[in-house]
């Protein structure tokens, strides 16, 4: 499943996309520790897969939550570097 967490508002589009098929196969789930804001939370999804989702309390603030990691001069993002199966993407 391709899970898009985030939102669109008047100021733009902010989505983190998780490919849960890839995520389910990942043992380490290193993204959880890598994110300085604790955005990634392990869950068992509705189809019984062990995956991560974005903390529901923070999903509406993604633009601000991710801001510290986002200045263009310091890519790549820690969550994306930590994601060994390549399951993560940011839309902005």
């Amino acid at each position: 499943m391709i899970a898009n967490y985030g939102y669109m508002d008047g100021s733009g589009e902010y989505y983190i996309t998780i490919d849960t098929d890839k995520c389910a196969e990942c043992e380490g789930k290193m993204c959880i520790a890598a994110c300085p804001k604790g955005l990634f939370v392990p869950i068992e999804d509705d189809y019984g897969e062990d995956v991560v989702e974005i903390d529901s309390g923070k999903v509406k603030e993604l633009k601000y939550q991710c801001m510290d990691c986002k200045p263009t001069e310091k890519p790549p993002l820690p969550c994306i570097s930590a994601c060994t199966p390549g399951a993560l993407k940011h839309s902005w």
């Binding site: 499943m1 898009n4 967490y5 939102y7």
Partner: peptide, 21 residues
């Protein structure tokens, strides 16, 4: 939401932050 022939979700997107739409 995208679903397969059994109704299982294959892709989804949600927007509950902004009242537009």
């Amino acid at each position: 939401i995208h679903v397969d022939e059994k109704g299982k979700v294959t892709n989804f997107l949600m927007n509950d932050k902004c009242a537009a739409g």
